[in-house]
Computed example of a mutant assay.
Amino acid sequence: MALPLPTGEFGAYLFDCDGTIADSMPLHHVAWTAALHEWGCEFPEELFYAWGGRPVADIVADLNERHGLAMPVEAVLRRQEELYEQALPRLTAVPEVLAHIEDAHGRVPFAVVSGSTREGVTGSLRTLGLLDRFDLLVCAGEYARAKPAPDAFLTAARLLDVAPESCLVFEDTDLGIQAATAAGMASVRVPHPRERAAAL
């Protein structure tokens, strides 16, 4: 399944990581499920995808409220990342996005703009052999407000010295698309794994 781009010339490509470059969402869900099980908490797949792009702290806070729990955010985050790292050997790239990375690399600057930690993003990109393709990483904690606020994408545009309206964003979540629109950027929505499978 090809991933069509908007018409026009773009001065930079900005990519979300999880679910966009890395086909990591199924692996993340398994890690979340295992980590949360240790605190007696469930995180159904449908809710996991609906909350895609949200900061980890917000996810844990909302799960605590829903289930009447008091899970420690940092401990859950560390455990989830530890379990995800164990699954990294099974990680693959999203083929439709990889095709655009290979085609445009060297012609326009690339940035990863993610709500995940720098360690998590670096680990995924290194596993995929793609870390050296990106001029810039903008990760959790490196901008003021999370998606759907435009801060992360505007930070990347500023650091790349490219006007926001000249940037093209690749995103798999509604929050990410909203953030790109708020930043004045064109965007491409990357289908979720189940959507890609249904299109085969």
Rank of each mutant, 00 (worst) to 15 (best):
L88W: 12
R54A: 03
P164D: 09
T181C: 14
Q86D: 10
E46D: 15
T181N: 13
E45T: 05
P55L: 08
P4N: 07
F43R: 03
H100S: 06
T33N: 12
K147C: 10
L98Q: 11
I59Y: 00
R126I: 14
A111R: 00
R79C: 04
P164W: 03
Y13T: 10
F48M: 00
R133A: 11
V60N: 00
P72Y: 02
D62F: 00
M71V: 14
A50V: 12
D18G: 01
E96N: 12
A186M: 11
E46N: 14
C139G: 13
G176L: 10
P72D: 09
A57N: 14
V169G: 07
D172L: 06
A31W: 08
V112A: 00
V73A: 01
L168E: 00
D23H: 08
A2C: 01
E96K: 10
T173V: 08
G11E: 05
L137W: 04
A179T: 05
Y49G: 08
D62Y: 01
D23I: 07
F153Q: 03
R145Q: 15
M25W: 09
F134V: 02
F170C: 04
G123H: 03
R118L: 14
L160G: 09
V108N: 03
L83W: 08
P26C: 07
W32E: 13
E85W: 01
I21A: 04
F43P: 02
R158N: 06
G184N: 13
G8S: 05
A57G: 02
A183H: 11
R66G: 09
H192D: 04
H67K: 04
G40D: 13
A186G: 02
I101S: 01
G8N: 05
Y49R: 14
L83N: 07
E46R: 12
R189S: 07
Q86M: 05
A12W: 03
V97I: 07
S24M: 07
E142T: 12
A179Y: 06
D151A: 11
A157I: 11
E171K: 08
L47W: 09
D58C: 04
S114Q: 03
S166E: 15
L69S: 12
L131I: 10
E82K: 05
M185E: 12
P6N: 01
V76N: 03
A75K: 14
E38C: 05
E85L: 01
W51K: 14
P148Q: 02
V188C: 08
A35N: 14
